[in-house]
Amino acid sequence: MPEPTKPQTAPVKMRAKNVNFYYGSFQALYDINLDFATNKVTAMIGPSGCGKSTFLRNLNRINETLRDTRLEGEITLDDENILDQDVTAVRRRIGMVFQRPNPFPKSIFENIIYGPKINGMLKGKNAAEIVETSLRRAALWEETKDKLNESAYALSGGQQQRLCIARALAVNPEVLLLDEPCSALDPIATSKIEDLLITLKHQCTIVIVTHNMQQAARVADTTGFFLLGKLIEHDKTEVIFKNPSRKETEDYITGRFG
């Protein structure tokens, strides 16, 4: 039986139990057990191909869109297995932001309102209010309030990524998954996103995959290290970066891996 995950810093929002994942006959994840604490930022780090993004993409069942994949085990949200639930409902509760900003070829306003509209959340609600609230939560309101009807493509890369975060927030997700959200951004835009994550965690539970270890060290409450499809160690971020328990973690974060 694999080790239970530590640490317990807050009640568990999501939990992966004995998760194995296969691309065809290739096993990409092995017996992952990982708890995501409520209103905390959990970072997942590891070398390319270690399975961290694959694992993240299972957390809102995006991998199901790929052919010939198989997931074993259980992923719970508030103690209920998301694999048994309606996938659209799951993805409304668990939002996702990708590596490269991917706004729709529409106005800023329409980008934000798209999710609430298709989820039937506009009834009796003011669309403009949802747009403003979402942009404010993503710290983008001041920069966009006078050009809401302009194309999202007119924004800078960093603003586009915050727009994508605002778009994800518009449907009030309980969990926000981010797959290397700053890898295409400059340090200033990165810093804004990091500040945003630290603010946002009070409203939702955040899971971030990052190649930037200093980013994990700065924003995450707990950090998990993946290697070759296995979760090697998950602990408080300060423990991981000051005194990790496992040699594999130490070798990776100090750059002696391989």
Binding site: Q214, A217, F241, K242, N243, P244, T249, E250, I253, T254
Partner: peptide, 9 residues
Amino acid sequence: EAPVASDMR
């Protein structure tokens, strides 16, 4: 280098 773990210590 922003050292971490044993290097930082």
